[in-house]
Amino acid sequence: SYKYSFSTFFITIQALTSLSLAGLDVYHAMPIRIIDTIVGSVIAWAAATYLWPDWRYLTLSHTAAQTITANGRYLDAILDQLQNGSRDDVDYRLTRRQAHESTAALSSTLSDMSSNPKKYQDRLQDGFTLLKTSYALTGHISALGAYRDQVRIDGNDGFAPYAKLTHHIAELLTQMPQTDPEAFETAMTQIRQEFAELEQNTQAQQDHILKHQLDLIIRQLTPCYQALHRQADVEAV
């Protein structure tokens, strides 16, 4: 499944051995077989690279970036429903599915890479950090989504500060792959200040639940950003 070059090499030996057992001239067939192998390898490489690319480990940072931005869109969709009421429409379910599928794609990519740890040892650690934070983000965002009905039923007019903070977190997640360190720190400072203001005004049980989930999401932002951009730097080199 993983050692394609080795398997191709030994299949060539197997083909030549079979020809020999069949009583054919191996030395006459060998050049033709080598040419066939080279042509087939070129066709397979072109198809796998351009027609049906499945070498996601070659662009791990891109796969990770898609996962983070998908979580940002998922959080933004939940914010919309926290404000306007819970509804399982097609757009919401599609956004939720994309967030879970992108996290699963990142997990699959790292699983493939971990089968050859020596080759990818400089990328696996940050990759697994990204996977851990991505699963945590998806889980915390989903938990916040499970609370959509309660905000609507309670009719809490004090949700506006939570909406502002949630929007800033979702925006930062969506733009994280393109955000430079200075802009990220500025955004994090703003998010922390808004969260500190919420902590001072927490009163109802609903406020405690919302604040707790947002706190868990905020804690994942910095390690996620650091691992994502270290991974991009490695690929750039």
Rank of each mutant, 00 (worst) to 15 (best):
F10Y: 14
I13L: 15
L16N: 01
S18P: 01
S20A: 14
L21Q: 11
A22V: 00
G23R: 02
L24G: 00
A29G: 01
A29F: 08
M30I: 02
P31G: 06
R33T: 13
I34G: 01
I38R: 03
G40V: 03
G40N: 06
V42P: 01
A44I: 04
Y50W: 15
W52R: 09
D54K: 12
T59Q: 10
L60E: 09
L60P: 00
L60K: 03
T63N: 07
I68F: 13
I68P: 03
A70M: 03
A70R: 03
N71D: 15
R73F: 14
Y74D: 04
L75R: 01
I78E: 02
L79C: 02
D80Y: 12
Q81R: 15
N84W: 08
G85W: 08
G85V: 10
R87A: 14
D88H: 09
V90K: 11
D91L: 14
Y92I: 01
R93L: 15
E101W: 07
S108M: 06
S111M: 09
S114L: 06
S115T: 09
S115R: 12
K118L: 13
K118Y: 07
Y120T: 04
Q121R: 12
Q121M: 09
Q121F: 11
R123S: 10
D126G: 13
D126C: 10
G127N: 01
L131D: 07
I141D: 04
A143V: 00
A143R: 11
G145N: 03
A146I: 00
Y147V: 11
Y147P: 00
V151A: 13
R152G: 04
R152E: 09
R152D: 06
I153P: 00
I153Y: 06
D154M: 13
D154T: 11
G158N: 15
F159V: 15
Y162V: 09
A163D: 09
H167L: 14
H168V: 03
E171N: 09
E171V: 05
L172C: 10
D180C: 01
P181E: 13
P181N: 11
P181M: 03
A183F: 00
F184E: 01
T186Q: 13
T186N: 07
A187W: 00
M188W: 04
M188S: 12
M188V: 11
T189W: 01
Q193R: 12
Q193E: 14
Q193W: 04
F195H: 15
F195L: 12
L198W: 07
T202I: 15
T202S: 14
A204D: 08
Q206E: 12
H208C: 05
L210T: 02
K211Y: 13
H212C: 03
D215A: 14
R219W: 06
L221T: 05
C224N: 14
A227S: 15
H229I: 07
Q231M: 15
A232I: 05
V237A: 11
